[in-house]
Nucleic acid binder design. Structure first.
Length: 287
DNA sequence: CGAATTTGACCTCA
DNA sequence: TGAGGTCAAATTCG
């Protein structure tokens, strides 16, 4: 997959920069400088973005390059309460490609307004999970036959965090939504979605990623009116379509950034010369 | 009054 | 058989 020596070096350098910025971020947060921290987050996002581009340029983003090491969906469900594997039960013909994101919502605000219209069609208590899972489908399912659905569940550990799993692509007019389009462009070509089960992809090839509105990918969008006490409203979509979570715990008193996959990042940095190794083996292996 | 939500029942799969 | 996912009638909302 290579012949990208220069890019590798550029990527390693970029990642080193990211690492430095993370440290700086921690420092700023320790100093109680949320504005400065947020500014740094923007730079951080840009740097990550550049890294992704470099990786793409080298073709390190290829759906087929994933190895087969085990990583269940359940493992991706943070906390998940150790509950059952939500995706293990799947109907025949159900879309097998999905996107999972994690978002933090501001209390008393509609949590997951992703700019698209959804209609709730069910809710279910999930074994081992503290909160029920809500099921949404595209409002235009009937009128336009749009197959997009999403599942939303509160994270056990933090009631302000939601795990959102998108299934299928919008085939309705909403598909033209800029946010949805952006996401599709980001994810579709590289197939950066978790692929369910190991069944052949063929029949589900059209099941692309559904609409999500990353206000600006990897950027932070503090809630309107959020003051000193704002709890991050970070619709942060990882470029890989996996769930990163970069959140602020400022309201709780201690300002801190928690990043899911923190261990992976550490490893990421350590092995910056082959940065995507862990990604494929650890993160991408959904099966 | 139409659209959205709620919720118990049913379906599918492992 | 149990658990997740979906259906659809009843209810609520704007």
């Amino acid at each position: 997959m290579d012949g990208c020596g220069g890019e590798k070096r550029a990527l390693a350098s970029e990642l080193a920069q990211v690492q430095a910025m993370v440290r700086e971020l921690e420092a700023r947060m320790d100093q109680d400088l949320p504005a400065a921290a947020r500014e740094l987050c923007g730079e951080l996002a840009s740097s990550v973005d550049r890294s992704i581009r470099i990786a793409r340029a080298c073709g390190w983003y290829s759906p087929g390059s994933r190895d087969g090491s085990p990583r269940s969906d359940g493992a991706q469900h943070p906390g998940g309460g150790g509950g059952g594997n939500a995706q293990s039960k799947r109907r025949k013909g159900t879309p097998c490609v999905r996107t999972q994101v994690r978002v933090a919502a501001v209390q008393d605000m509609a949590p997951l307004d992703d700019g698209l219209s959804w209609r709730k069609y069910g809710q279910k208590d999930i074994l081992g999970a503290m909160y029920p899972r809500a099921y949404f489908r595209c409002t235009h399912r009937n009128s336009q036959g749009c197959p997009a659905t999403k599942h939303v569940q509160r994270a056990d550990g933090d009631p302000l965090l939601y795990d959102v799993v998108y299934h299928g692509a919008h085939s309705c007019a909403q598909a033209a939504h800029p946010g949805a389009e952006h996401l599709r462009r980001q994810l579709q070509p590289e197939g950066h979605a978790d692929v369910e089960q190991s069944s052949p992809l063929a029949p589900e090839a059209e099941c692309l990623q559904a609409g999500l509105e990353p206000v600006a990918p990897y950027s932070f969008a503090p809630a309107p009116g959020a003051g000193a006490d704002f709890v991050g409203y970070f619709p942060l979509l990882s470029p890989t379509g996996l769930e990163w979570q970069l959140r602020s715990c400022y309201a709780a008193g201690g300002l801190g950034v928690g990043m899911d996959y923190e261990p992976h990042f550490e490893e990421f940095y350590k092995n910056a010369t082959d940065p995507f190794q862990w990604e494929y083996s650890d993160l991408y292996a959904a099966n």
